Simulated scan of single mutants.
Amino acid sequence: MSQRDEEYGERLDEAYWEVNAAASRLISYGCGISAKHLSDRRLRMQFNRELAYYARRVMDDVYERRITPEQGLERIQAEKKSLYSQATRIFTQLGGMAGGASQFAEGLVSCIGSLGSTCVIHGAPLIMHGGNNLYENARGLYEGRTDVVGPVREFYQDAAKSLGYSERDGNLAYYTADLFLSGRALWRKVPRRDAWRLYRYMDADKERKIRQLGKGGLGVEASTSGMTIKQWVDEYRK
């Protein structure tokens, strides 16, 4: 008889080992999340250790019959669901920050490159939306929240309420405008990389902005637009 068999004796039943297997899957899942989101080795090891301690406590509680195997499985599943929710939030907010930075930079380039001629109708809205997305996602990431509302979104909400609509309608308008601005920025014509003119570029010297993006840039744009669409759908279903 092995040392483990002697330790658990008659408690080596199917229900206990089901909890054991679920705990092992939780630890493995947590290690994958920490490897993806925690670049600091010390923090990653601390997170993995605390998660392993939690799983072990649940197993001990089941073994000592302080809780039933079913309750142990519920606790482990709840912890895994919480980790998934947090990982999704972090991924979404990091993507939102990347998209906001891209919008802000595109708006700034548009204002500077056109000497202000397209700033009001194109550059400034991109700068405002990009800055707001950066603020909401950066603060939400830092504070562990998903309900941060920036000043630009507040403007949309207040405008919707003043017209007799709801805060939800203001959020929908914000997401719609965000998608429109990002799409227009990708579709507008910009000078080709190899084009050169002393005074003014001709139409033949320009191409769609989307053609100048590499795979990485297209991936970021597609990912952030996809997340915005999901937020729109989630808001619509409320």
Rank of each mutant, 00 (worst) to 15 (best):
R56S: 15
L141G: 09
Y54Q: 14
A124V: 09
R57S: 12
D60Y: 02
A52C: 12
R89G: 09
A78T: 12
G100E: 06
A87Y: 02
G116H: 07
G99S: 11
G116E: 09
S82T: 07
L134S: 07
G113Y: 06
G113D: 15
G99R: 04
V120H: 10
T88W: 03
C111R: 15
R65N: 12
A124Y: 08
Q103H: 13
A124H: 12
L141D: 08
P125H: 02
R49Y: 07
L134D: 08
R75L: 13
A124K: 07
E74L: 10
K81I: 02
R139H: 09
S82L: 14
G72T: 02
I90V: 15
S85T: 09
I76S: 01
G95D: 04
L73H: 04
L73W: 00
Y53G: 12
G96K: 02
T146F: 00
C119V: 15
R145S: 07
S102G: 13
E70W: 00
G95M: 04
R44V: 05
A52M: 13
I112E: 06
A105C: 09
E74V: 03
E143K: 10
T92F: 03
A55M: 04
R139P: 06
M97V: 12
D60M: 10
N132H: 00
G107T: 06
L115H: 13
Q93S: 11
G96A: 03
H129A: 12
L115I: 06
P125Y: 02
G144E: 10
G107K: 06
N48T: 01
D61Y: 02
R66G: 11
G130C: 09
G131I: 00
Y53M: 12
R65A: 11
E64Y: 00
G96P: 08
